[in-house]
Design a protein around this nucleic acid. Structure first.
Length: 496
RNA sequence: GGUCUCGUGGCCGAGUGGCUAGGCAGAGCUCUGCAAAAGCUCGUACAGCGGUUCGAAUCCGCUCGAGACCUCCA
């Protein structure tokens, strides 16, 4: 028996059996990027982890609504004083409209994700598209006495909330310690308490991103957009809420406070957090300036890299570790991943071509059959164990050995029996392509192949081997290519 | 300072009380005109010290080391 899917829930700090609130429907919300600059590999890893979860849940027959937002307003540079909005700042520095900044980096974000073969989410809402909802929730929180207005800004009253609830339960903080540990930051005079966070910020006269509100022109605070958008599309209570570890506090704890305060219940049943990508043992982050961009990895142009790595190599590399572990980037590790990836892709090609050939008198090899069946089960076991892609890949490599053995003739399809043989191929293919989202990348240059063929063509012509000449010409023609014999050389063209 | 995580063979990286992780690199063998691919076999690891246990990499304690969060970050 294969145990059911279990996931590690940050909220309970335990692996729990995954039971959707309304099976077969699953609601999954993942905090997307703030689009003020390019996403780096750490960001990619997070979205990759959830892409695979999305894929696997669908593979298991769930009807998943996957919501991943774009934060395009409200993310402040810091919570102190005149915390400038990140988008506004980028707009000022790049001399663009804020929405131009948003569009530019949203486009690039999408380009990166499609490069890495991510499935698009079901809904990709934006913060600026949900200002009304954010105002509404802010009003509700004020009415309940959980938020207060000061000079056009509105703050969430953490102390008040904490009287009846536990602020910080997700990340395991307690309010007293937080207050004690807070540095005295300038410009926090408006807040009743340093740990209160902004729901709505007054826009200074020069601030470009501004909306009218009951408290005057302003813009919504970070945290609020996720609460509003997740509940709008998934309901006040939904199944999975995900994001990077570094969002646990304060972002996700604030979301919980807003939901509990505003709607009377916690938003998500399961909170899933992905771990960080490190480089030389240190967290890759925008603020530390040690990030590697996907484009730099793909081009190989980065001081830490000594060659280029394709998107699928990176995807494979990342899936070789569990999403809850830190993952360290290094050339050596990437090179090893490249070889492993190619090995798997060679197997994919073979698996697609293999067909069952059974003769009635060949006997079933029960040991091999049992092994293969076990490996197929193990793929599900591994994914059911908190989406353990690393283990899944290990099992796929073991299946690959059987597939390769069949191709070389060391093992015959009949020895497995038609059913097991079919299951082996189906499992291998569906896990590699559908679940892990790995695909073959074109690694050969067609021009070089044509060139090699034309060299042989030329030789055949010189030695007047016209049978071979005709053969080459016709096989190229089958691919839509005509050979051009010219006075002083040979060239080719697409057939018109 | 507070909270927490991690330390696995040459490298990366799963596992988390007894049962082969896997990839890369290395050694040997099979196949092969040569070569490659592929298959088979091999290394026998779990930071250190102590404890619990019939048995621990896995549980507990201590020590050392690395890192994360507590301020923006996926």
């Amino acid at each position: 028996m294969i145990p059911p899917l279990r996931v590690y829930n940050t909220l309970t700090r335990e692996k729990e059996v995954f039971e959707p609130l309304n099976a077969p429907f699953v609601g999954m919300y993942v905090c997307g990027p703030t689009v003020y600059n390019d996403v780096h590999l750490g960001n990619v890893r997070t979205f990759l982890s959830f892409d695979v979860m999305y894929r696997y849940l669908q593979h298991q027959g769930y009807k998943v609504r996957y919501v991943r937002n774009i934060t395009d307003v409200g993310h402040l540079l810091d919570e102190s004083g005149e915390g400038e909005d990140k988008i506004s700042r980028a707009a000022r520095l790049e001399q663009l409209e804020p929405m131009e900044v948003v569009q530019r980096y949203t486009n690039r974000f999408h380009e990166v994700l499609s490069l890495f073969n991510f499935l698009p989410p079901s809904i990709e809402p934006t913060a600026t598209g949900h200002i009304l909802e954010q105002i509404k929730l802010t009003k509700a929180l004020i009415e309940k006495g959980l938020a207060y207005e000061v000079d056009g800004s509105v703050y969430f009253d953490v102390n008040k909330y904490n009287q009846d609830h536990t602020y910080g339960k997700l990340s395991g903080r307690n309010v007293e310690e937080l207050i004690a540990g807070q540095r005295e930051l300038e410009g926090q005079a408006e807040k009743r308490n340093s740990i209160d966070f902004a729901l709505w910020k007054k826009a200074s006269p020069e601030h470009i991103m501004r909306w009218d509100s009951p408290w005057g022109p302003g813009f919504p605070g970070w945290h609020l957009e996720c609460t509003v958008m997740s509940t709008k599309y998934l309901g006040e209570r939904f199944d999975i809420h995900g994001g990077g570890m570094d969002l646990k506090f304060p972002h996700h704890d604030c979301e919980i406070a807003q939901s509990v305060g505003g709607y009377g219940q916690e938003p998500a049943k399961y909170w899933l957090h992905t771990n960080m990508v490190t480089i030389n043992g240190q967290k890759m982050s925008k603020s530390l300036g040690n990030s590697i961009l996907p484009s730099e990895l793909i081009s190989g142009k980065h001081p830490l890299l000594d060659q280029a790595y394709s998107p699928m190599i990176i995807r494979f590399f990342m899936l070789q570790s569990h999403y809850s572990s830190t993952l360290d980037f290094s050339n050596e590790a990437l090179k090893a991943a490249q070889k492993g990836y190619i090995k798997l892709m060679n197997g994919l090609r073979i698996a697609k071509e293999l067909e069952f050939t059974g003769d009635s008198d060949s006997k079933v090899n029960e040991k091999a059959q049992k092994q293969v069946e076990g490996l197929c089960d193990n793929c599900y076991r591994a994914m059911n164990d908190d989406f353990n892609t690393a283990q899944t890949i290990a099992h796929l490599f073991n299946l690959l050995k059987k597939i390769n053995s069949i191709q070389t003739g060391a093992l015959s399809p009949a020895e497995l029996g038609e059913e097991t043989f079919g299951r082996m191929l189906k499992t291998f293919l569906s896990f590699t392509e559908e679940v892990l989202g790995l695909k073959e990348e074109n690694r050969v240059q067609p021009e070089a192949l044509i060139g090699a063929l034309l060299d042989i063509y030329k030789e055949a012509k010189t030695s007047k081997d016209y049978d071979k000449v005709d053969q080459i010409r016709s096989s190229l023609r089958n691919s839509g290519i005509v050979v051009k014999d010219m006075k002083d050389g040979i060239d080719w063209a697409y057939e018109e």
